[in-house]
Amino acid sequence: MLTRRTALTLPFALTATPAWAAGNPLAFVLNSAAGSVSIIDMQTRQVVRTAPTYREPSHWALTRNRSQLLICDAGGNALFFFDPVTGAPLGHRRIADPYQIGFTPNNKYFAVNALRLDFVDIYDATTLALVKRFKAGLWPSHLDFSPDSRWSFHSMQNSNTLVSLDLTTLTKRWSVKVGETPAGVLWLNGKVLVCIMGARGFVEVDPLNGRITRRVVTGDGAHNIFLDTRRNILYVSNRGPGQTGLTALDPETFEILHNYLIPGGPDDIGIDPSGHIWVCLRYAESVAVLNPDTGAYSTIPVGRSPHGIFLSTLLRQKGLITAERI
Rank of each mutant, 00 (worst) to 15 (best):
T171G: 12
D250V: 01
G319F: 01
P18R: 14
T169L: 15
E324T: 15
L130E: 04
S36G: 13
V185T: 05
V120W: 03
V176K: 06
L165Y: 00
P89D: 11
R133W: 07
V217G: 10
P273L: 02
R200W: 10
G240T: 06
R4I: 11
V85W: 05
E204N: 04
G184C: 08
P266H: 04
V217Q: 13
E255R: 15
Y109K: 01
S149M: 07
F119K: 15
S141V: 11
G198A: 06
L170A: 06
P105F: 09
G270C: 08
R93N: 14
E204C: 03
N189A: 00
P18E: 13
A51C: 12
D83F: 12
L234Q: 01
T17L: 14
S58Y: 03
L234C: 05
A199H: 02
T9E: 10
L234N: 00
A16I: 13
G201K: 00
F12A: 09
N107W: 01
H258Q: 13
A136K: 10
I101R: 04
E285G: 10
S159Q: 09
T3H: 09
N291M: 03
L115I: 15
L320W: 11
H258K: 15
H154P: 06
Q100E: 14
L261K: 12
L249F: 05
V185E: 03
E252N: 13
D206K: 15
T229P: 08
P273C: 04
P57S: 06
L188S: 02
I309S: 02
K132F: 13
L14A: 05
P52N: 08
D41L: 02
L167E: 03
I95K: 06
I277R: 02
K318R: 14
G35T: 09
N238E: 08
S58K: 12
V29F: 04
S164N: 09
V120M: 05
I277Y: 05
A129C: 04
V178R: 04
Y297E: 05
F153R: 00
A74S: 15
R230Q: 15
G76C: 11
L130Y: 06
R49Q: 15
D220S: 14
R200A: 09
Q68C: 05
N291T: 10
L257M: 10
H276G: 00
F119R: 15
T181R: 14
Q46D: 05
G23A: 07
S141G: 11
L143M: 15
I321F: 12
T244G: 07
L311N: 07
L14Q: 15
K132Y: 13
R239K: 14
T218V: 04
R230G: 14
G295I: 07
G184S: 07
P306D: 00
F110L: 06
F145L: 08
P241G: 09
L115E: 15
L261M: 10
A136Y: 05
L170K: 09
P140N: 07
T63V: 04
T127V: 06
F310L: 00
P140W: 14
P98F: 06
R49D: 08
G91L: 13
P263S: 14
I225G: 01
P207N: 06
V205T: 02
L167I: 12
F12H: 10
L90V: 10
